[in-house]
Design a binder for these strands. Structure first.
Lengths: 262, 262
DNA sequence: CATAGATAACACTAAGCTTTGTTAAACCTA
DNA sequence: TAGGTTTAACAAAGCTTAGTGTTATCTATG
């Protein structure tokens, strides 16, 4: 059976699904199934392995044991595009011209960046290289970059220099994201990032957490903060109503961003 | 007479030269001379005008009056490619594996950046966005970005946050550049940049000034520092011998980087 | 040590972007 | 308004890059 993926990305998603269903497959088998060469399969698998979705061994690949499922979020992140766009549209309404907005290094906040030229004048503060490059091109947006040590895996600047730079500033709004939340707590798997996010929270007047619904109910190695520490928590319309209700009972100020309905 | 420029950039350089020689030319004349359409000439002239090299008027272009000559540096910068490459090659010998190297926001130091992967492991400290993007891709090079307010004209980060970040660090070597030097002093036209460069000099053990010979003998609005404040000054082989001699008499430690001879 | 599996190196292809020219419309200036 | 000059919009050509396959080399495992 030969499928015809529209693109490399698409095919990788299918391969990942396939592996997760089957549990374990050989490379040549995948080459057959998806109608590409073994070499291409290997390249796809290398990439999926880097993302922590699968595990390679001699003779094939297997799904990651669920204990490492955490990193799988990286893969999930790529898929939750519509959710993030919805959240970004909603978060935009919290920003007004003239404000100083702090944005952390997450794909969700990156979505927000694309909407900023509509709200000029504006000051953007970030430690995310990709966002720096994005915003540097936008006229009318003043950009304050947070320095620090560059981490290729996150494409952002972290560490002591970054935290000190944050402490010297004061933002009107912080838009931040995290990798998991449950039982009223936000989590993140990286210590370095937790420290930076906490510093950001200390330096912002209003703290907004952006979170697509796939992150609800999970945990990660490090606690970041109780959800009640945020002035607002924005989730997308895909969030289960009972989860939203439960959060509100914990006095978390949850906003639900409606998904585009087209 | 029809020339055949190898590329768009090359042709623009020739057009600029032509205009500077002639003083004033018509667009159709240029189209003839360079064997391209009038439309293309207009596009080239628009670009050169943006760079402050020429001035457009109905019917043709003229050279910029020398009062605006300063911005012309932008154009000069593009042309001294070979000189900068020579200087970069020379400067590379001053860097050894394991060092922390600080690089400022100049096209000369950018040339050095391309040579860094050969000297790993290495730590690079910079406030230049273009360099950040360049170095972020290089494996084996640790990158410390200096934050600050983004200045589109320089494509770099400046201001108080940047200076504070510099003061918290200590580099083994500083490679810096400036826009002019004469009578034993280095000059730069931008106050913000002068402050940052001075901070960098305070935070480095060895201070190296990189300067292509086109900058010798000029001045600019602000004094940066006496040349004797630098441990080394590297110029390219195009520097007039008597100028080099004069600098040495002032106890400036001048190195002459030989130009590629091919 | 033999063999299947994995990687590295090179070449080919397709897609996207840049550059250029053409044509048509807009704009001055006499 | 008639002459040119400039700009805008579209199309063609060229270049660059990402993606893929082939072949050859390397590596692990029985």
């Amino acid at each position: 059976m030969v499928e015809r993926p529209t693109s490399r990305h698409d095919r990788q998603d299918r391969i990942a699904d396939h592996v997760l269903r089957e549990g374990s497959v050989s490379a040549s088998q995948l080459a057959d199934t998806f109608g590409v060469s073994i070499m291409t399969v290997h390249r796809d698998l290398d990439e999926l392995e880097r993302q922590g979705v699968v595990r390679k061994f001699r003779g094939g690949v297997s799904a990651q044991p669920s204990s490492v499922f955490e990193s799988n979020v990286v893969y999930r992140l790529r898929t939750a595009r519509a959710e993030k766009a919805a959240i970004a549209r909603y978060a935009r309404t919290m920003i007004e011209p003239g404000m100083a907005v702090m944005l952390d290094d997450s794909t969700t906040t990156l979505e927000v960046a694309g909407l900023l030229p509509e709200i000029t004048p504006l000051t953007v503060i970030t430690n995310f290289l990709r966002m720096v490059n994005e915003v540097a091109r936008q006229p009318g947006v003043r950009l304050m970059a947070l320095g620090g040590e560059y981490y290729p895996t996150h494409d952002s600047f972290l560490g002591v220099p970054c935290i000190e730079a944050i402490e010297a500033l004061r933002a009107d709004v912080l838009l931040t994201s995290t990798s998991a939340a449950s039982a009223g707590l936000a989590y993140h798997q990286e210590q370095e990032i937790v420290l930076v996010k906490r510093a950001m929270m200390r330096s912002a007047n209003r703290k907004v957490l952006l979170m697509d619904h796939t992150k609800l109910g999970g945990t990660a190695l490090h606690q970041l903060a109780p959800l009640t520490d945020f002035d607002d928590v924005v989730v997308d319309g895909g969030a289960p109503p009972d989860v939203v209700r439960a959060l509100r009972e914990r006095r978390v100020n949850v906003h639900v961003a409606p998904l585009e309905t087209d």
